[in-house]
Design a protein around this nucleic acid. Structure first.
Lengths: 169, 169
DNA sequence: AAGGTATATTTAGTTAGCTAACTAAACAGT
DNA sequence: ACTGTTTAGTTAGCTAACTAAATATACCTT
């Protein structure tokens, strides 16, 4: 039976918000599964890619190296998670971690030549890969999806800002 | 400065598909951050909730207990991940794992009375929580978002089906 | 009946996220 | 100058996902 399996993709009895919520989780899971092998082909993971991409575009725009905290803010991950990703990237020789000139607490991260070369290679192929994965949607649909997701994210963001205790009530 | 931080949310230089892709990752991360404390208030995690919800709706519709594989298919996770979630739920006394009558390889999972009561309690509050998190979008926008995400997921799904090697080329 | 293949689950080991609790440096106010 | 608070990062220990490989049972073909 090649046409379908027996798993219900959407439960019509649920409220609209719940169905939307689940479709987001499902789409995200499928996208991650579709992208992971692409990154694996370069010997890195999705998280590692994002770090490298941020470092490369940062060094192309401005001069200095990034602080770990800045990295975490851009990645939406907490400090201990930054430590882990960065440590693994360093152990592979893709990035270098150094001290800051002005503040002895902060560490600054920059790509090594090896890491820069890798990141450029991945970036070359990355857009095409993403376009292939999103190919099921027409351009106009992608644009609408982007608009809705940005609006959604902007609405959620203040509720989960770092120092506001979430769901504490 | 209460109005904005310095992190660029969307990079306009990127292709549309890439921006859409990133907005999906960002929205998903924020939603998870917004939901996790809700589940934590009941002493469970998001993954554990989904398992319990599936088991409850399954037992309400049909009779029997679910196989681990069926659970994994619905959750979009691989067998070893199922083992882990299920083991932790069992150790908390929320589910019971038993053998199958007809096939000695399969294990069947069902809620305990304790797990059933918890799942009903969470379900009571869950829809309102989700609606609150998605409240930044109007109903009509949620419906459009749902439509686009379902279409996207349906397009990706055949590419990542279990036995088709993804991105192998 | 035996052998080979397929299916269900587990184990071992990795990555990545989290919280809580820690160290160390910077800063602020007396 | 001291004390107290905030900030940057790490460590320890948890959950959860993954792959690769092992085990055990079922099925199928001859």
């Amino acid at each position: 039976m090649p046409t379908s399996n027996t798993i219900p993709q959407v439960d019509l009895n649920q409220p609209l918000a719940v169905r939307t919520f689940r479709s987001l989780i499902r789409a995200m899971g499928l996208m991650h599964r579709a992208m992971a092998p692409f990154f694996a082909g370069y010997g890195i993971t999705a998280s590692q890619w994002v770090v490298c991409r941020i470092l490369l575009s940062h060094e192309e725009e401005t001069a200095g190296a990034l602080r770990l905290t800045d990295l975490g803010d851009r990645l939406l991950i907490r400090p201990p998670s930054v430590t882990g990703v960065v440590r693994r990237l360093q152990s592979e020789g893709y990035i270098k971690i150094g001290a800051s000139d002005d503040d002895a607490r902060v560490k600054r991260v920059r790509l090594t030549p090896k890491g820069r070369a890798l990141t450029r290679r991945v970036r070359q192929a990355h857009a095409a890969q993403v376009q292939s994965v999103l190919g099921g949607l027409k351009e106009i649909e992608q644009a609408e999806l982007l608009r809705l997701l940005v609006r959604l994210a902007d609405a959620i963001e203040p509720k989960v800002s770092k120092h506001l205790e979430v769901g504490h009530a």
